[in-house]
């Protein structure tokens, strides 16, 4: 069983509402602030990208569903900050600081923004030799679940679990989110682009010519003979 964020293929969400070509980047000022605060606190270096994603996924289904996008970000950030001791629960409750933080010397400064954003955080690593070759047929594991942590982070969506696919590209080894989100280290694994025929994913495929391609780590798959 997966978590509430894993919605690929779900029915019932209704129409998509495209925006105008000249729409603002942020619909509200607080959206911009939410993004900026999240990046600035992330720059303190107390967690990684995978931990951060998992904190949004761990919101209760009730909250995840009723929150707008940036509300999820703010709520997940609050949870992460308390769990990692960046602020205390009492400080959040009272909105009053109990004193300066020992992390203050890591505070993200304006002159560092451009170089830090330009530098990014590449996740390609040296690691095991890939087992699968381009063109090879594979089958994804039966459950879209973290192998080691119940309810833990994983990037195999439920709709692509237990399905036959074909390797179309090999990307070398990348940091494995299922480990990195839980303090087990980067544990790099081979990453592949895997194509699935829509007839192998959906009961009512729109057009048999179509495919869905996902980037999947090697532990999410086994080789199919033939």
């Amino acid at each position: 069983m997966t978590r509430v964020h894993d919605i690929g293929g779900r029915f019932g969400d209704g129409a998509i509402l495209p925006d105008a070509a000249d729409a603002d980047v942020f619909d509200y000022d607080w959206h911009a602030k939410a993004l900026a605060v999240t990046l600035a606190v992330g720059a303190l270096g107390q967690w990684n990208l995978d931990i951060s994603r998992h904190s949004r996924e761990r919101l209760s289904p009730k909250d995840y569903t009723r929150f707008s996008y940036y509300e999820k970000w703010m709520s997940a950030l609050a949870d992460l900050m308390v769990e990692n001791g960046v602020v205390t629960l009492e400080e959040l409750e009272s909105a009053v600081s109990s004193g300066g933080s020992p992390l203050a010397d890591k505070c993200f400064q304006p002159e560092t923004v451009a170089p830090a954003l330009a530098k990014g955080g590449p996740v390609d690593r040296t690691g095991p030799i890939p087992l699968f070759a381009v063109g090879q047929s594979v089958h994804t594991i039966p459950n879209a679940e973290n192998a080691n942590v119940q309810g833990g982070h994983t990037r195999l969506p439920a709709y692509a679990a237990n399905r036959a696919g074909r390797i179309i590209a090999s990307h070398g080894c990348h940091v494995f989110p299922d480990s990195n989100a839980h303090g087990f280290g980067e544990d790099p694994k081979p990453l592949y682009s895997v194509a699935f025929k829509v007839a192998d994913l959906w009961a009512h495929p729109e057009n048999p010519l179509d495919e869905v391609i996902l980037d999947l780590w090697e532990p999410y798959m086994v080789a199919l003979d033939g």
Partner: peptide, 24 residues
């Protein structure tokens, strides 16, 4: 909610308002 977080974090010296402006 955002304002409350921002204010608290500025008080603790963990974020710089000028940095937020630069990111935005």
């Amino acid at each position: 909610r955002v304002k409350a977080l921002e204010t608290l974090l500025i008080e603790k010296g963990l974020i710089n308002p000028a940095t937020l402006d630069e990111i935005i």
